[in-house]
Write a protein that binds this DNA or RNA. Sequence first.
DNA 1: GTCAGAAGTCATCAGTTGATGACATCGTAG
DNA 2: CTACGATGTCATCAACTGATGACTTCTGAC
Lengths: 212, 212
Amino acid sequence: MTVGRSDGTGVDRGAATPRRTRNAGATREALLGAAQDLFGRKGYERATTREIGEVAGVDPALISRYFGSKADLYLAAVATERLGADEVDGHDRTDAPFDDLAQVVEVVLRRTARRGPGPILQALVRDDASAEIREAATARLERRMVGPIAAGYEAAGLDRPTLRAQVAVAALLGVGLARSLGWFDELHAADPGDLAGLVTDSLAAVPDDPAG
Amino acid sequence: MTVGRSDGTGVDRGAATPRRTRNAGATREALLGAAQDLFGRKGYERATTREIGEVAGVDPALISRYFGSKADLYLAAVATERLGADEVDGHDRTDAPFDDLAQVVEVVLRRTARRGPGPILQALVRDDASAEIREAATARLERRMVGPIAAGYEAAGLDRPTLRAQVAVAALLGVGLARSLGWFDELHAADPGDLAGLVTDSLAAVPDDPAG
DNA sequence: GTCAGAAGTCATCAGTTGATGACATCGTAG
DNA sequence: CTACGATGTCATCAACTGATGACTTCTGAC
């Protein structure tokens, strides 16, 4: 799919080349941004190409030109999506596994505090996403989240660490989903930091006397 | 455009007793069952009236006649959906609040072991459901699950019982979602009873010395 | 037997969606 | 300046969706 040129002609880079009224790179970026926004908020089906074009301030026909199809645009949007990992402290840990449960919890909660569920969460939750997309998403979850958490559980001497980690990740994503979709008022309004302690405590699942 | 005539009128749908070739009640039931199945598996958008009719072995036009519209059929399907509550032991607790956390966990895990996420979970997760549907679903969650669990937390002397209960329900639904959608292999294959202990332990979040 | 109405069938409508090719316009190399 | 390719605009298509009303067929009362 080749995300193509990243020629740095940012849309808001004031000094760079702002005068340029015709700029394929900027148009691509605008479409990608609008796609991430709308796919994340409304899901694949409900986000129409016309709407994406409108948000991007660009003619929808250009989706076809620059990405091939709506599905390809979706793939590109998911590929670009970082799951908010790049916002942990200042590090750019775009795709690296997390350190431990606490960090995963913090990132997910912070991520879901801002916008709706991103493309990855949507891909997991929706069955209209292609199997290919789903598998890529789950694989990423396994590697970045389940792995480190399972290691932590194992180090803590808990049995079935992988299963526990899968439960923890699923549960955490459930909380994130509930927050970003506004299932419950209190949960929706809760402070991320405050919530993090609560969730981490629950998911730590430490028995009375941890072996370690 | 031949719509694809239904070869054979009453396919195999009438396994029960329908000698009656024309039976409005049975037709309604068939549509409702097909709607629950397809809405649960594919979501509102992707489940088309034509497909529902095909699965039900019934002409899609009858959706309009018996339910008014596709949205009304969805509402009826959600209203009929029991969330598996009627399978707890033998009681028919169609819409009553659950007793405690353990029961909620058991029901949700058992429910999501069988089929895909049902209409209620779909309504919660998908944003293409109307706001009306979403609110009804969350209201039901609050009443049946959050309430009892919060009461349990409060009795256990935990602070912020409602918020904790919301977190617990959201987390539990996340696990249920992960199971029914097959995010993780182990979690998907895990035995409901076995899993119940794990999840309940985590969500109980009991401090070292429970008050109760 | 027959006949009114219930139950089911069918063709078709209007709206929306994603896609695409023809055309217009801009930027820039020469 | 001019011409050509890159970029953007527009009208329109084909497919699909939910809905609906006219029509047919069956059931059961009389």
